[in-house]
Each structure stands twice: as structure tokens, then as C-alpha cells.
Amino acid sequence: MASLLKQIVSGSESGCTVTIHDTVDHSGRYLLKCFLKEMAQRVDEIHLFAFDQAPDALLAGTDPETRRKVKGHDGWTDPQGWNQDRNVIPSNYNAVQLSSEKSLVEHVKDRKGSGSGQIAVVIDSLTPYILHRSAPFTCKSLHALTHLPETSEFQVTQVVSLIHSDVHDDSVLRAIGHLSSTVIHVSANMSLAPLDREPMGYCDIQHKRASGKVLQKREGYSVGENYQIITFLGLPSTNTTSEPEHQPDPTANLTFNLTLSESEKKARENVVLPFTKASNNSTTGSGQIFYEPDQADDYDDEDPDDDLDI
């Protein structure tokens, strides 16, 4: 059984927009670096937007080939543009201001190298971008990255973003998930076993194929040396239903009986209801109506409404 997570990371299972949801309990940045390493083998350039930390911190530990293909966009050092005169951002990185109206596509165009056809984008993370701008503006920017016109001089083949799901409400997460072809929720596995024996965390994957089929899978994962991903299959599904708990019987210790025995049920069925008369005609499908007027009834055929006070 093939690993869906490994296929998505390696690019054999295409996903143009991948969003990794993490929380304060378990970071998805290790998985993000696995995507970064695999992207370097498939595309001409990788545009890294760093909003949670400096680009150098995110690139620490990556191989030289990966670093050579990365075009950094620093939105961490001076996110509001207060220190433009001090040149606090390294010259090899492009300054990104969160308050600017400039879209992500425009930043990519400014830093794109000549002759670069296929480009991938990595965003760490969407959370500051959403908080400083808005969820609709962020969704519009993500959509523009993957829907460039065919006449454009470059194409963005994949966008991989990290988002802190415990910061945003459900409406924001649903909006981002609607744009994503792949949504990966990461969670921690509290184990002290070696990473090659037990997973460091779990991935709950929802992957939308181009055909319209939606795959949902839960896999364990670990990150080895040089950000090689290790997957663990055969995990129990998250939506398995547990056995219902035994509910106590509230009528068990009562001093009176609330239920009927079989003989009592049969006797109840044989009781003739009042104001009815059983017909002696045993022919099926036929019936008769009997009306027996009381002594107080004074029915006048010529005036049926005589008893009404009109």
C-alpha cells in the first residue's frame, strides 16, 4: 500500500495548493521543509515567503542545492516597513510589508530570475498575513498564484503554505481549505521510541484529485536526516465509532411494574373498545356502521340544525 503523504510530498500525486494545519502542540514546519527539499528537484525556482521567522532560520539545515534555488521574501524582519532607512533586511532577500497592497504574485515577478519557467511558492506562514490583511485578501492572493494566464512568462506549479489552525476561527480555515487541493492536519505522537520505529506525529490528509475524487487518509510520519520523510501506514481511522456504553435501566428497582407480560398483552388486545359493536359478518373487506340514538336525541329530518342556538 503506497503512502499518500509521500506521493504528495514527492510530487507524484499532483496538488497545486497544499495547506499544512498545525497547532502550538505540534509544529508543521518539519513537514514544510520536506516539501522544500523535494521541490528543489522539480522546479526552477522556489519563492519562500517568511512571515513567522527569518528566511535563514527556515533554510537552516537544508542542502546547498535547495538554498541555491530559493528566492527569499522577508516579511519577518521589518513587516511594517518602519526600518527601511536602516537596511535591516539582507540584500539577497526581498522585503515584504504586510501593510502593503502588493500581492504575492507581484513579489514573485520582482524576484523572478530570467529564464525561469516553473516556480514553486512556500509560505511560512499564512497566519500573520491573514491577521494583518484579511482572509478574503489572502484567499485572493493564493488563487492568483495558481491561476496565472497561459501567456504569462512563468507558471506557479505548486504552493505549499503553513497555517496555525488554533489561531483562526472555523470560517477562515474553511475558506483556506476550499482553495486547497490538499489539506494536511498534523498532530503529535507522544512517544520516546526512535523515529524510524514510531512516528513523531500524525497526518490527517484530505486530497482532491483533478478527477474530482476526494481521498481521506491518516498516516504517521517522521522526518529523518536531510529532511527525508518516513511514513507509517495501517493506522486506525479517526472516524471509527466506539461501542455504545451500557445505559442503566431506570425501571429496574421500582416497587411497581411498568411493563406488561405476554399474557397481559394478549388480554389487552382482546378488549373491546367502548361505543363499538363488532359485526358478525366475517366477510373480509366489508364493514357496517351502527348508530344507536340516545333517549335525549331529538333529531328532526326537516331541520338538522334545530339543536343549534342560532
Rank of each mutant, 00 (worst) to 15 (best):
M1R: 03
A2W: 03
S3E: 07
L5S: 02
Q7F: 04
I8C: 02
V9R: 11
S12Y: 12
S14Y: 14
T17G: 06
T17I: 14
H21E: 15
S27G: 02
S27Q: 07
Y30R: 15
L32G: 04
K33M: 03
F35K: 08
L36C: 09
M39S: 08
R42F: 08
R42L: 07
R42S: 05
V43Q: 09
H47V: 15
D52V: 06
Q53F: 03
A54C: 07
A57H: 11
A57Q: 11
G61M: 04
G61K: 05
P64T: 06
P64Y: 03
R67Q: 04
R67D: 07
V70E: 05
K71N: 10
W76M: 04
D78L: 14
Q80Y: 14
V88M: 09
N92M: 04
N94W: 07
A95R: 10
D110N: 10
R111D: 06
K112L: 15
S114R: 12
V122S: 00
V122F: 00
I123Y: 01
D124S: 03
D124Y: 01
L126P: 00
I130G: 01
S134G: 03
F137Y: 10
T138N: 01
S141F: 07
H143I: 00
H147Q: 00
L148F: 01
P149V: 07
P149T: 02
P149A: 07
T151K: 06
E153L: 02
I163E: 03
I163P: 00
D170G: 05
L179P: 03
S180I: 07
S181E: 12
M190R: 13
C203I: 06
C203F: 03
Q206S: 09
A210E: 10
A210M: 08
K213A: 13
V214G: 15
E219N: 03
E219L: 04
E219Q: 09
N226H: 10
N226D: 12
N226R: 15
Q228P: 03
I230F: 10
T231D: 15
F232C: 11
L235K: 15
L235S: 05
P236D: 11
P236S: 11
S237Y: 10
T238F: 13
T238K: 14
T240G: 05
Q247R: 13
Q247D: 12
T251M: 06
F256V: 12
E262C: 03
R268F: 10
N270Q: 13
N270I: 09
K277P: 00
K277E: 08
S279R: 07
N281G: 11
S282H: 08
T284C: 15
G285K: 13
G285R: 08
D298V: 10
D301V: 15
D306R: 11
L308W: 11
